[in-house]
Each structure stands twice: as structure tokens, then as C-alpha cells.
Amino acid sequence: MAPLVSISGLKVAFDGTPVLHGIDLDIGKGEALGLVGESGSGKSVTWLAALGLLPVKAKVSGSVQLEGRELLGAPGTELDSVRGRRIAMIFQDPASALNPVLTIRRQLCESLALHRGLRGEAARVEALRLLDLVGIPDANRRLSAYPHEFSGGQVQRIMIAMALAGQPDLLIADEPTTALDATIQAQILDLLSAIRREFNMAMVLISHDLGVVAENCDRVCVMYAGRIVERAPATRLFDDPWHPYAQGLIGALPPLDGVRRKLQAIPGTVPDPRALPSGCAFAPRCMFAGDGCHAGVPPLAPLEDDRAVACLRPQRLPVELAAE
């Protein structure tokens, strides 16, 4: 089946400093893809670049296709028919994405007018339906409320409602629950997966939280210093990560049950994009690194049908162990 969105060789540079070094990524219809990585790994920049949302000074090259239509370099009018309509995005800080001096109704109806051409009573009815859908109680009365009258979790629900206004095929959720408390995070993730099932909508979930991604995605890409270093089905990645960085991320997470062990911290820090090490960017922090690792950048190579890893020395479990 042809992918919904296909990104290939996507590169981004700010002021001559490359921050994204060629991303290849396909998302199928209705698929949930997770992007994990630490700050500065390029998870958000990938999608901001794909949707033409980066400032002018950013140099973007490569290709981003939505069902065969090229988005990079497309004129603004064409992008406007994609952004919010075919591909919608929600962010970590929902409160700053809403206008504080306009009612929720005005803002929801604006989206509906823009993307669906709905006006007046039709728009109001649809806005009401959307608020109901995302679980805002007493939606009829709350339509005329202002953003500050809602709690953080509710504002994120409203953002999701606005994102759904254009009936998108793909929702990019950039750290949607990071600013929320644990019990509210569970509510929002629950809502997102219910909506995905109902509308067969694809989703890209960008998060630094491995647990969130593991539980809500089919496939996961691990990013490090502007590259994808491992791509695998979610369940298999967390049971048996191959890339030493992916292993490090999982080992660094304190367990919630079982015996307490010393955490496997990854030594050192994420490299500065202006001074990337030669070869594999992770090599200086990697306990398995050898001479070859410093010589050249390992490509993201498929090792099995559905798995790929960018590492010269992937740490695969022996077959009999992996089968357990």
C-alpha cells in the first residue's frame, strides 16, 4: 500500500549548521508512529520542516510527499490546503496556541470556516459535536468560555478538537502530554487512541517519554543528533533494542517494579550540532564503539523486514534469547 506521507532525504540547516542530516520516513494510512529522542535530536524539526513551518532562515532540502504530492517548496496556497486540513498538529503547550481574548466558539468556528467552509449555525453545531467528542462536559455552555476558564488537560482537549476540525488524515502530536499531570496524561492518551480508531487517522507521536510512545504507537523511530538511528515495531524495540543508544535510553529509565538496580546512565552529553563528532554521532558515548565507528556515518540499514538500525555493531540478542 502506498504510504500516506513519505519523507526522504530531509535535511535542515540553521545558519549553515545542519541539524537534520537526511531523514527517511514513511507513514501508512491509519498508522501510529512514535518519534523518540532527547532534546535537540530533531524530532520536532522534522515535522516543522515538512509542513513549511520553519523560519525563512532555515535551509530545507529533500522531499516530503503527501500521497505523491510534493510539499517542500510548494506555494503557500497549496500548503494551506494541507496544513490543518490533511495534516494537523498539536503542541506541548496548548495554552499558548489559543488566543486568550477570543471565546472557544470563535476559535473553533474559525477553523471550521477555514477548512470546511462551515458558517453560522452549521459551524456552531459542528463545534458542539467536536467538544462533545473530545469529552468537554457541558459543551453547549462552555462554547462561550475563554481559554483561561479551562484546566490544562481541557485546553489540550480543545486543541485536539481544533485539530480534528479539518478532519485530517494525519495528526502530528508534539509532546501532547508533557505539560500535564500523570492522571490527566492518561486521559489525553486514551482520547487520542479512541479518536484514531474512530476516524482511522494516522498519528505521529513525538515524545521524550519512552513509555508513552511504547504504549500508543505501532512503530517507533529513535532519533539522535538529527538522524534516525533505529526503526522498529514498538513492542520489539522495547523488548530488544539493537542500537546502543536505544538500549541506553531504555536502561536509563528507572523500573517501577522488581529489584532496584543502578541505572545505566549514558555517559557524556548530546553533542553540539556545531561540533558533531566525525563518524557515528553517538560513538563518543558508546561502550561498544570501535575504530570503524569514528570513520564514517553508518547508514540506516534494514536488518530484518520491519527493522532497521544505523549502527556498525548493533547489539542483537542471540536468536534463542530473543525468542523468549
Binding site: A182, T183, A186, L189, L210, G211, E215, F238, I250
Partner: peptide, 12 residues
């Protein structure tokens, strides 16, 4: 609820 809300990698 708190413990149950804490997502865990490896198991859904």
C-alpha cells in the same frame, strides 16, 4: 490510578 497511569515500555 497513579501507578496504573505510569506508562511502561515493553508492555501495553
Amino acid at each position: 490510578a497513579l501507578v496504573s497511569a505510569s506508562p511502561a515500555p515493553g508492555r501495553r
